[in-house]
């Protein structure tokens, strides 16, 4: 797996909750429609601006709240990775399990503004702003987590191990994404 990721940054603040990213009303919608409501109140219109390959940069306690799989919405929007000063651990696990790299990098919100190019390496654990030359160290992901990401998430990994049908072979389109919760 290529652990080096480069993309355009979008910067949000501290304690952005899961309710702010995946509101209850969106839980009633199919994923592509639900994804249009990420940051619905925090940054109205953002989902019309984000492009595949972009990276979301957040402050402390990112993803506080519920287990609803926000990562599935970010993937739907094409977001390539998340970087935060600090992650809520449930939110981070959800990201990894949906195949979305998530790296903790203290100081990252001060080093980037919307639109900056961000380079990061999830195995080595750093994020860099090529325009300013700032490189910040972060918490490298443990091998066990990198394995899940390399598989594209926990469900593709389960499919490979024979626990669930391989996507496309079971008569069901798409890849399995069990959903949830408050």
């Amino acid at each position: 797996m290529d652990t080096l990721i480069t993309g355009r940054a979008w910067v949000v603040g501290d304690s952005v909750t899961t309710d702010a990213m995946y509101p209850a009303f969106a839980m009633k919608l199919p994923l592509p429609e639900a994804a249009r409501h990420v940051f619905y109140e925090l940054r109205p219109g953002w989902t019309g601006l984000v492009r595949p390959g972009d990276i979301v940069v957040a402050g402390r306690n990112f993803g506080l709240g519920s287990s609803r799989p926000v990562a599935a919405l970010f993937r739907e929007l094409g977001v390539a990775a998340l970087v935060a000063e600090e992650f809520n651990s449930l939110f981070l696990r959800n990201a990894v399990n949906h195949g979305l790299p998530a790296l903790t990098v203290p100081g990252v919100t001060a080093a980037f503004a919307d639109g900056d190019t961000l380079r990061m390496d999830i195995a080595e654990g750093w994020a860099e702003n090529p325009a300013t030359g700032t490189r910040l160290p972060g918490g490298a992901l443990p091998p066990l987590v990198l394995d899940i990401l390399a598989a594209g998430g926990i469900l593709p990994k389960l499919a490979r191990e024979g626990y669930v049908p391989v996507p496309g072979t079971s008569g069901r389109p798409g890849h399995p994404q069990p959903s949830g919760k408050s």
């Binding site: 696990r93 399990n97 926990i154 469900l155 389960l158 994404q177 069990p178």
Partner: peptide, 8 residues
């Protein structure tokens, strides 16, 4: 633990 992980 999130829906995907609990499934796993």
């Amino acid at each position: 633990l999130g829906p995907a992980e609990v499934y796993a």
